[in-house]
Design a protein around this nucleic acid. Structure first.
Length: 403
RNA sequence: GGAGAGGUACCAAAGCGGCCAAAUGGGGCGGACUGUAAAUCCGCUGGUUUUACCUUCGGAGGUUCGAAUCCUCCCCUCUCCA
């Protein structure tokens, strides 16, 4: 078969921004056939609804799914409601706790809503793997297990690592890659997308598909975004995420708080199909502050629209760069409960939702607390009825009225 | 089933009868510095009505004036053997 320009054009876009591309040669004729017969490829991206929010880390592969959509293929967003109940061990040193059904359902709903911000869900398949997994009999599951060996399971990095280090591995964790693989069988996926940490699971999919008499899917992995801490993979449980539903000021501020080095990585990972123009500056390292602001602006615009950019940036300049009080400060009312006044520590704890008065005390003794724009360092201070502007650290503000 | 090792604060890890609210490192939170950062430096990091008291060292009991430390039972993890 001669390579058609259209096939090569599509492959080029598909390849952009990916790390591994397994099965490209097998995909080429399938792609050609797909184009010829007007029968789109089925492209699978699965996510476990293990946390209620998607973050920018998720958007890397989502973006690739969108590219497939733009090329006329069928994006399948697979919500791993069943797999979330198993708990994916990938990249963890511990088994991830399985979630209960209710939690999973609630998360799944918000996932789909959030995916709609990136993908045209009207023209996508949204599926749940509980659909076919719950229908399997124990016999079916045992059969599925028979297609893979323990030795091969232990090839997976986090398994072998834990095994070597004497950390526990539960048997059910071996089920995860197999279930994910079976999803590809059920969906008859031509392509599956994932992060680089998913490579093993994705490849298991190829083998299992073959065993079930299907042509193996092509596999595309993409870089994992390191979280705002600059150390670990972005993940809700580490708390280093930028959520796509975060407020504009949050998205802007969190983006500004990343290190210059991390910024370059982010631009690299997030650029494909979208922000290539930022790449030269990211590589040269020129004017990092300017580039970071541009990145922050684009992040805000991407998830909240252009209109949100101005105020998010203004907020940042005012509060972080100049250390001033923001225009909008949350208002809190506290009851004195008949007393003449209320201790500062109690006021701080209640207005900022601190865990204890001890935490409030630490903030005060650390010099982080301001009342009406003047630093306070007496933890025994008591506030009488009235209005106060409270600040705790750089970013926490509240206008408190004591009654 | 047998033998051995182990479970300490958010994590890792010391402590092995009183000086232990528990060393140290990481993380986190503050502060200083800065180009927003990073790096660096400093402080804090169980709770309270804070020179004291209360709750904490897998769980439940027990010994003792006193237990993270000793004993008993139980639960969990790892290794080797079967």
């Amino acid at each position: 078969m001669t390579a058609s320009p259209e096939v090569e054009r599509q492959l080029e876009r598909i390849r952009t921004g990916s790390v591994d591309f397994v099965g490209e040669d097998e995909l080429r004729p399938r792609l050609a056939k797909a184009i010829e017969e007007g029968r789109p490829l089925r492209v699978k991206l699965g996510m476990d609804p293990s946390a209620p929010d998607l973050h920018v880390g998720h958007t890397v592969t989502l973006e690739k799914l969108k590219i497939f959509q733009e090329l006329g293929h069928t994006p399948i967003f697979l919500v791993g409601d069943f797999t979330a109940r198993i708990g994916d061990p990938t990249g963890k040193n511990k088994a991830r706790p399985a979630l209960d059904e209710e939690q999973v359902k609630a998360n799944a709903v918000t996932y789909v809503e959030q995916v709609a911000r990136v993908l045209d869900v009207e023209r996508a398949e949204i599926r749940f793997n509980g659909e076919w997994m719950d229908a399997l009999s124990p016999t079916d599951i045992v059969k599925l297990c028979s297609h893979y060996t323990v030795a091969r399971m232990l090839e997976r990095d986090d398994f072998s690592k834990r095994y070597r280090e004497g950390l526990p591995i539960s048997v059910h964790e071996f089920l995860y890659p197999l279930v994910q693989a079976y999803d590809s069988v059920a969906l008859q996926a031509d392509v599956e997308l994932g992060g680089t940490d998913q490579l093993f699971n994705l490849l298991v999919g190829r083998e299992i598909q073959r065993d079930y008499g299907q042509a193996p899917q092509a596999v595309l992995t993409h870089p994992l975004l390191v979280g705002t801490d600059g150390k670990e993979k972005m993940s809700k449980s580490v708390g280093n995420t930028i959520g796509i539903t975060d407020a504009p000021e949050e998205i802007y501020g969190k983006t500004m708080s990343i290190s210059d080095k991390l910024m370059a990585d982010w631009v690299g990972a997030l650029s494909f199909g979208r922000w290539e123009d930022l790449l030269p500056q990211a590589r040269s390292g020129e004017d990092p502050l300017g580039l970071k602001k541009e990145l922050a602006r684009r992040m805000v615009a991407r998830f909240h629209g252009d209109d949100a950019v101005g105020s998010a940036e203004g907020h940042f300049q005012q509060v972080i760069q100049r250390g001033e009080t923001p225009d909008e400060v949350p208002e809190v009312e506290l009851a004195l409960g008949g007393e003449a006044n209320l201790g500062l520590l109690d006021v701080l704890r209640q207005t900022f939702g601190l865990a204890s008065n001890g935490e409030a005390r630490r903030l005060v003794s650390g010099g982080a607390v301001q009342v009406d724009e003047g630093r306070v360092d007496d933890p025994k201070l008591r506030l009488a009825a009235g209005e106060y502007l409270l600040r705790a650290g750089k970013r926490r503000f509240a206008r408190v009225s004591l009654k």
